[in-house]
């Protein structure tokens, strides 16, 4: 079935714990699917060639560029976006708290990508050095903050997460 080449496909994905089924064009980028088919506009698009990192989401827990995947490729997978980060409406994820506390964002456009890449990174490196944090976010461009407070926020978030 899947060996038959088609221009459209029906896909099923789980995003932030909720299942979705949609028929999509094969060429539809995952970023466009999340934003404009599912209305999850927290994932931003900055370059559509995989450099800026604003569209970073977690695919089965690992950070990927959603502009460098087709929605059809996500069929059967789990995706997490910034909308799924906070545990509930009233509470922020430690990363979100840390970014707020340390002034880790200005225009907020790169922020969701930063948060998602850091979520995956801190899960694997709970006590990173500054250099390791900088390396981890080096695939995410920020034009506002000069990164310093993002690095501070990441360190603080690591601390909060370790305390949990």
């Amino acid at each position: 079935m899947n060996t038959i080449a088609t221009e459209r496909r029906v896909i099923r994905v789980v995003v932030n714990g909720s299942p979705y089924e949609r028929e999509v064009e094969a060429r539809l980028l995952l970023s466009d699917f999340l934003r404009h088919e599912l209305g999850l506009t927290g994932t931003h698009v900055g370059c559509e060639h995989g450099v800026c990192g604003a569209c970073t989401v977690l695919l089965d827990g690992e950070p990927v560029r959603s502009c460098l995947m087709f929605a059809v490729q996500a069929d059967g997978h789990e995706i997490e976006t910034v909308e799924g980060l906070a545990p509930n409406e009233a509470e922020l994820h430690p990363l979100q708290r840390a970014f707020w506390e340390k002034h880790g964002l200005q225009c907020g456009y790169c922020t969701p990508g930063m948060l998602m890449v850091l979520k995956a990174f801190l899960a694997e490196n709970p006590d990173p050095s500054e250099e390791e944090i900088r390396e981890a976010i080096s695939g995410n461009l920020c034009r506002c903050t000069g990164y310093q407070n993002i690095v501070e926020a990441a360190r603080y978030a690591a601390q909060l997460l370790r305390q949990r």
């Binding site: 899947n2 060996t3 080449a5 221009e7 496909r9 094969a26």
Partner: peptide, 8 residues
């Protein structure tokens, strides 16, 4: 536009 297949 392209056609897409995902062999297993």
């Amino acid at each position: 536009r392209f056609r897409y297949c995902s062999p297993e």
